[in-house]
Design a protein around this nucleic acid. Structure first.
Lengths: 136, 136
DNA sequence: TTAGGGGTCATACTAAAGTACCAACGGCAT
DNA sequence: ATGCCGTTGGTACTTTAGTATGACCCCTAA
């Protein structure tokens, strides 16, 4: 946090200096206007990129597109997919049953089928596989 | 793709116009230098942000930064963290033990401590919590 | 040197997960 | 209408996960 303040402080200082410098050079006529304008443009262009990168790092922005075709390829049914989503939320079979108004037996059936279709031995492995396949 | 070319074409055109406009206004002296420089700075600042966003969208860029401070805050030890990573790979306690050359008992101890520290009831829930905390 | 923390391991137990098999119902296509 | 498939649910069982407790070792800070 202190580092961020320091960086931004130096940045603003540098920009003010650049600003004053450009004013001076343009009015004095030592350097051509094109070059000064170009320098300002380039500097602020990269400042924009830098600030943008910083702000993007703070938001997570998890843009993971779900591969619906893959789900169909694996012959995962809609119910099974619902159960898979519940598993990824860390719910137990009992809790999944309560959420979907089904018995724990049914959830076990769905989970077993899911493990077969995802070729997993455990629900945690199913999660890892499903993520690598961009299913969840 | 055609859209991208169109957008960039218009952008470059606008920038050239802005460039010429700034040259004209500075040399003619109608508008103060400060304002022209400010306009150029602001415009290129946002152009930088825009270009950066565009380029970032093209790469998938799974930039999930791990929050090491959080790990320390939760008092998760290095061994426990290793076990957590193994869990996220879908390994069983036995398999984790084999990978880390430890007994299954030890893994169970670490897992239990992890669940306490992450305030989770199950390993799947621990995964979900750890992900939300940007620990894994 | 002693207390505390991290790491290791064990036993004994309960709870949850997972497997196997069976059964029933409804929709849908041949 | 006959068969397939998805969905639901059950029983019975094995395996894995998780808890509780105690023990030992090593290192480090007080």
């Amino acid at each position: 946090m202190k580092k961020t303040i320091l960086v931004f402080g130096l940045l603003i200082l540098a920009l003010i200096l650049l600003f004053q410098f450009s004013k001076y050079t343009i009015t004095s006529g030592d350097v051509s206007t094109e070059i000064v304008v170009s320098v300002i443009a380039i500097v602020f262009f990269f400042v924009g990129i830098y600030i943008n990168k910083k702000s993007l790092n703070k938001l997570p922005s998890e843009t993971v597109e779900i591969d619906h075709d893959k789900i169909k390829d694996l012959e995962i049914t809609s119910r099974e997919y619902e159960v898979l989503q519940c598993i990824s939320e860390g719910l137990s079979n009992k809790e999944i049953g309560e959420r979907l108004f089904l018995s724990e037996s049914t959830i076990k059936t769905h989970v077993s089928n899911l493990l077969l279709k995802l070729n997993a031995k455990r629900r945690t492995q199913a999660l890892q596989i499903a993520k690598s396949l961009k299913i969840i």
